[in-house]
Simulated scan of single mutants.
Amino acid sequence: MGAKIREIPAQLPRNFDRPDEPWHHYLTIDLIAKVFDYTILHPWVSWIVVICLRSQLTPYEATEMRVAFVWAILMTLRSMFGLINDKLAYGTPREVDLSEEVIVITGGVEGLGALIAEVYGMRNANVAVLDTKKVDLEEAEEKGIVYYECDVGDAKQVEEVAKEIVEDLGAPTILINNAGIVHVKSLLNSTAEEVEQTFRTNTLSHFNTIRSFLPYMITEGRGTIVTVSSVLGHLGAANLSFYTASKAALLAMHSSLRAELSQHPTGQDIKTILVTPGQMSTKMFNGVKTPSNFLAPIIAPVDVAKEIISLVEKGESGDVTVPLYSKYIQFLGILPLGMQVLVRRWCGVDRAMVDAGLVKGEKTKPAEKL
């Protein structure tokens, strides 16, 4: 008899939890952009068009041949510019072998963090999850994940857990800072304790984990640090003042971290990934609607997880900006103030929490974890 195969529990997406949507609901600008990237904007496809025209004996002087040539050259230059830009911005990718990596994920019991942790757990990687929520030992063994009960907003707790992880799994080389909470309240309704709790979990936790785990990465001469922020860090929003402020702080922190690692003598092979997703279909903002499903679709956490995992395993630095609008949202800041007011009114970012029924005077929604 061969060795017994370990059964891994898997919960498939339950489509019946979502209402049936018409076909055009799934037609978004993100889908169109992806199709274009793999077709008319792809250099190989552009040159295939030129080859096809020549196979039909189309003269070089013909208008369609000239247009195809110019387009293929432009798409090639565009692709080369992208490669050079990424090289200058992020450097050379590092080699990633999951069998030799130790992955630490904060806030990995639910939501986006849980998805990433379970994917790596199923692949027999060394995964440590830091969360305040307890997980049954049997469930942890089934998922192939080691859970540590830890408040990542407490520096001393993180330092102690870091020693345990090194002892149990080895030196951490991949850190995914995902923990986050939200209080849906107006600034006037907030309390000092709620503001402090939000910043401890959403912002200070990143400083605590980086201080604790980065020295091991520097010693190993390799590593990856993932910072999960939010598109709201660029925008701000009514009734989310301290949540958006805590996420905005991460944008500056991550830029400073990149700059410091670029100057460190052994920091070249420590990669950094900044994640600024739009609205995800998690319970954190359940019921909140975007102004346009075509321009600003609500994204599934699995789509964000795939982008993060892809960059981590390629050993690259980079930015995860999904859906498409989150990549260009910073351009809103260069518009005249009057235009910014009109755009905010149209998109409803400052009414979203009220319209979703999450803000009701003094009765506010309790904090929820990612």
Rank of each mutant, 00 (worst) to 15 (best):
V161W: 04
E142P: 00
S205H: 06
S229G: 14
V119N: 12
R123V: 03
E110R: 14
A238E: 07
A245N: 06
I105R: 02
E159W: 02
T191Y: 04
K156V: 15
N239T: 09
S212K: 05
K247E: 09
G223E: 06
A171F: 11
I218E: 10
E160R: 13
I210H: 10
M122A: 11
H206G: 04
V184K: 06
N177Q: 13
S241M: 10
K133N: 14
R222N: 08
T132R: 15
N189L: 07
L187T: 08
G111R: 02
Q157M: 09
E101S: 02
V158I: 04
T209D: 08
A128I: 03
L235W: 13
V146K: 13
T173N: 02
V195G: 07
L137D: 14
F242L: 02
V166N: 07
G223T: 07
E159F: 08
C150K: 02
A114T: 04
L169W: 05
C150M: 05
S246E: 12
L112W: 00
N126I: 01
V152F: 12
V231S: 13
K156G: 08
L137T: 14
L214N: 08
Q157P: 12
A179M: 07
S229C: 06
I165R: 03
N178L: 05
L187F: 15
K134H: 13
A114I: 00
C150H: 05
V104K: 03
I116S: 03
E167N: 14
I174L: 03
E193L: 13
S246K: 12
S229H: 07
E100W: 01
E193Y: 13
V119E: 15
A245C: 10
R211S: 13
G121M: 04
T201V: 15
R123H: 03
I174C: 03
I174Q: 01
N239L: 02
V102S: 06
E141H: 11
I116R: 04
A117N: 01
G144R: 01
N126V: 00
G121C: 07
V166A: 12
L130W: 03
T198D: 07
V195Q: 15
Y216I: 01
Y216W: 10
I210L: 08
G180T: 02
G107I: 03
L137G: 08
A140W: 05
A125M: 00
